[in-house]
Nucleic acid binder design. Structure first.
Lengths: 126, 126
DNA sequence: GGCAATGTACGATTATATTCGTAAAATGAA
DNA sequence: TTCATTTTACGAATATAATCGTACATTGCC
């Protein structure tokens, strides 16, 4: 499995990955239905994208039956980590806390969110 | 000034914007020198990129003297906000606190960072 | 003036992402 | 079996980003 190689999914690929992460596994049709709710594009476009993602190793698939079944081959967490790190570097001059400030400051978080973060903060202080 | 239009700078454009944000204003040469430290590309490539950014309205320039002087025309804060929001939507299912957790959890922050965040958290709790 | 250095403009090329049309195979229902 | 539907494969077209070569103008120095 890819734990080290730096694959950067494009925006379209991320949309597909999000669906796969949510569903666990899905056919092209299922992914497409979900995307089509927001986006406007043809079925074969989604198909082609997923085929390309397969070639890149971003997804795996079970092609034992006619209708292939896809799964993400990169973890949501790793991808988040990778993209957050990149964003911290290029947009926040390497300062993680700056990113946190921005994320928290631009939108008033709920009490639950605040508590969650406080807990994390407490555990980090030790 | 562009406060509403959703301009999305590409990766290369972001690198240039970062330099401009840091320096306040800069010539193509200055930007290029800084980029060349990390990246490997020709002078005219940087020039062309900055010309395109000018056409897009991402930067402004003073061309009254032969050597043009560039400035960012989008604020660092607005750009950060925009990209963070997008990331929250597509990668964190809309949960800001999830992003914060990821940002803090994947790397041990310094005491100073923790204090900064604690302060922000305190002020938000009110 | 002549010339090297530096700058901009701009077209051309390359790379990559995205979209879609069409063909062919598999499936299932009448 | 026959035919409509669903699916994959794949090539081609389109869009956008990134890189560079070359031409030409300006500047400053000899």
């Amino acid at each position: 499995m890819n734990t080290t190689k730096a694959l950067k999914p494009t925006d379209s690929e991320l949309e597909i990955l999000r669906v796969l992460w949510d569903k666990g596994e899905a056919t092209v049709r299922e992914v497409h239905e979900e995307l089509a709710a927001t986006k406007d594009c043809g079925y074969t476009t989604t198909l082609k994208l997923m085929q390309i993602m397969f070639e890149k190793g971003l997804v795996i698939r079970d092609d034992s039956s006619r209708t292939h079944i896809y799964q993400a081959n990169v973890s949501r967490e790793k991808t988040q980590q990778q993209l957050v790190n990149k964003m911290v570097d290029t947009l926040f001059s390497g300062s993680r806390s700056q990113l946190v400030m921005q994320a928290l400051g631009s939108h008033t978080p709920s009490k639950e969110e605040l508590n969650e973060i406080q807990q994390l903060l407490d555990s980090l202080k030790k």
